[in-house]
């Protein structure tokens, strides 16, 4: 499967990112190189291999249900380009999900 410029535009849209045509061309090439590389793996026979979701052999890393101090609200809002009271402010989102 070859990645086209349309795929790149679609992925950029899902991430709400905008790129120049030049950049889109570069990404198309790069995406294809990555996928070709990954495709190599398809040459392996994996019939009897359990799918691997994590490379480290760990399970049940959990914490007890205890509340700890949250971040001071000034810190929380420190990087926000826009805020009001203690809310973050973002451009109007039409409708809701």
């Amino acid at each position: 499967m070859k990645v086209t410029i349309k795929d790149v535009e679609y992925i950029a849209k899902l991430a709400r990112l905008e790129y120049s045509d030049e950049e889109k061309k570069t990404f198309t090439k790069q995406f294809n190189t990555i996928l070709e590389y990954i495709d190599k793996l398809n040459e392996l026979n994996t019939d009897d291999i359990e799918p691997l979701s994590h490379v480290i052999e760990l399970s049940n890393v959990v914490r007890e249900d205890e509340v700890k101090q949250s971040l001071p609200v000034e810190e929380v809002l420190k990087n926000a380009p826009s805020k009001t009271d203690t809310f973050f402010k973002v451009p109007k989102v039409i409708g809701g999900t």
Partner: peptide, 23 residues
């Protein structure tokens, strides 16, 4: 639960905006 699913912030309802928040 008392704390959130993946961090130790409180789940308490009705707190002032962005007061139960961490990185």
């Amino acid at each position: 639960t008392e704390s959130k699913a993946f961090c130790a912030c409180s789940t308490q309802f009705g707190r002032k905006a962005n007061h139960n928040v961490c990185p």
